[in-house]
Design a protein around this nucleic acid. Structure first.
Ligand SMILES: [Mn+2]
Ligand SMILES: [Mn+2]
Length: 269
DNA sequence: GTTTAGG
DNA sequence: CCTAAACAACGCACG
DNA sequence: CGTGCG
């Protein structure tokens, strides 16, 4: 692979894309530059979900065929362009990290250049990192469970939310599940948001016995796991429009509730 | 992927 | 100049 | 505490 670089001007900011021809997704022949261009093409939607959110980057610097080289990056590197925005966040351990804040399309492109395939924003905004403005329902089908079951659990999640005056916005996860995001007032701490998610999950489980589960141990799970723990501090979910580190390069795609019935997640790549 | 140390 | 090496996460459940 | 899980 020849060593070269391409400079993209994004909203007046020059972003250097190194090794643009490096193949990230061998099965479909997509390169790093292809991935950057994909993110730029959906920048508006991506930023609707990520803008000003401190984010963990899931980096695969040598593509999806080198999972042994993949890692999560929370602390943004010291060496970075001066325009890169950051936000210090605190972990329950008491430690803290200076995390990248995805302020605009240039930030996304810069992150992708470092090998970030999916973006994992905290459910908070820069300036108030202790109060989530988003509750997230993460639906993970256990192995062998058809997507159809996910599509039957999702509307029940919606019902429970609505009974509490909340509206859920569904999207495919880009892998085998679904995510439902709920806008909330940035008023409660992580612990309270997680408690609400737990209560919601338990109610969904109660209404869908054998189809929805909140059991932590895989062995005890049956059907679709409603993963309320993703609402804890420092736990994240791949953002809307994130590409996922899988061979087919499927992406997380927001959908309308009317589309949920009969949805095929593999259609979004 | 980037940076740094060492030859 | 070039290459090798170091580095890049952490919370919660359970027993 | 170590292990499982995401
Ligand atoms: Mn999931
Ligand atoms: Mn999950």
């Amino acid at each position: 692979m020849p060593s070269k670089a391409e400079i993209l001007e994004i909203d007046g900011i020059d972003v250097r894309i190194t090794n643009p021809d490096k193949v990230f997704f061998p099965d479909i022949g997509a390169t790093k530059l292809d991935l950057v261009n994909y993110y730029l093409s959906v920048a508006e939607g991506t930023l609707a979900g990520c803008r000003n959110r401190p984010s963990t980057l899931y980096r695969w610097p040598n593509g999806v065929d080198k999972p042994e080289d993949a890692f999560f990056q929370k602390r943004v590197g010291d060496k970075r362009p001066e325009w890169v925005q950051t936000q210090v966040v605190k972990f329950p351990s008491g430690r803290s990290a200076e995390m990248i804040v995805l302020a605009d399309a240039a930030h996304v492109a810069w992150a992708v250049n470092t090998g970030a395939i999916d973006l994992n924003p905290w459910p908070v905004r820069k300036g108030d990192v202790d109060h989530p403005d988003e509750l997230r329902a993460d639906l993970d089908p256990t192995p062998g469970v058809p997507y159809e079951d996910v599509c039957t659990v999702a509307p029940v999640v919606r019902d429970v939310l609505r009974e509490h005056g909340l509206e859920g916005w569904p999207k495919t996860s880009g892998k085998r599940g679904m995510h439902i995001y709920v806008r909330i007032e940035p008023r409660w701490p992580f612990t309270e948001v997680r408690r609400a998610a737990l209560a919601m999950a338990r109610e969904v489980e109660r209404r869908m016995p054998g189809v929805a589960t909140t059991a932590w141990w895989k062995e005890e799970r049956e059907g679709v796991f409603v993963d309320y723990n993703q609402n804890a501090r420092d736990r994240t979910i791949a953002s809307a429009y994130s590409a996922r580190p899988v061979a087919a390069a499927t992406v997380s795609c927001p959908v309308e509730w009317a589309e949920v019935d009969g949805l095929d997640p593999a259609a979004f790549t």
